[in-house]
C-alpha cells in the first residue's frame, strides 16, 4: 500500500495541478487569471515529464568521470524546449490582453462578450 502511494504520488499531484489549472481556465472570467491557469496546467505537464525521467539512485546526467547511475536526459531536453516556448506564448497572450484592455476597457470575458453583442 505504502509502495503504491509512493510510486504514484507524483502522478496524483500532477493530476491535482492539472485540475487546478483547468478549473481556473474554465471558471474565471478574468483573462490574466486564465493565462495564469494555463501556466499552472503547463507546469503540471513539466513535472509529469521530469518525474518519468527520474531513476532511483541516479544523479543528474552531467558526467564527472566516475561510474554512476544517471537519470534519463531525454525528458529534460524536451521540457527545456517547452519552458522557453511556454514563456514566449505567455508573453504573446499578455500582449493580447493589454490590447483587449485598450479596445474594450475591460479584461473580464463576459463584459467583452456583452459589448460584442451590443455593437
Amino acid at each position: 500500500m505504502v509502495d503504491l502511494i509512493l510510486g504514484l504520488y507524483n502522478y496524483w499531484i500532477v493530476i491535482a495541478l492539472m485540475m487546478a489549472g483547468l478549473y481556473i481556465v474554465i471558471s474565471r472570467q478574468n483573462l490574466i487569471k486564465k493565462l495564469i491557469g494555463l501556466n499552472i496546467f503547463q507546469t503540471s505537464v513539466f513535472v509529469l515529464y521530469i518525474s518519468i525521467g527520474k531513476v532511483f539512485g541516479g544523479t543528474a546526467p552531467i558526467l564527472d568521470g566516475t561510474d554512476r547511475i544517471y537519470s534519463n536526459p531525454l525528458p529534460h531536453v524536451l521540457i527545456l524546449t517547452a519552458i522557453v516556448v511556454g514563456v514566449a506564448t505567455a508573453a504573446l497572450g499578455l500582449a493580447l490582453v493589454v490590447r483587449i484592455k485598450e479596445e474594450y476597457g475591460t479584461i473580464e470575458e463576459d463584459d467583452i462578450n456583452q459589448m460584442d453583442d451590443e455593437s
Partner: peptide, 25 residues
C-alpha cells in the same frame, strides 16, 4: 528530480521573466 538544466531555465524564465511580464500587464 535530477533535472538541473531545467531548474536553471525555470529559475530564469519562471521566477524572473514571467513575474516581470505579469507585473507589466
Amino acid at each position: 528530480l535530477d533535472a538541473v538544466d531545467v531548474a536553471f531555465t525555470e529559475a530564469a524564465v519562471g521566477a524572473g521573466i514571467t513575474t516581470v511580464l505579469l507585473l507589466g500587464t
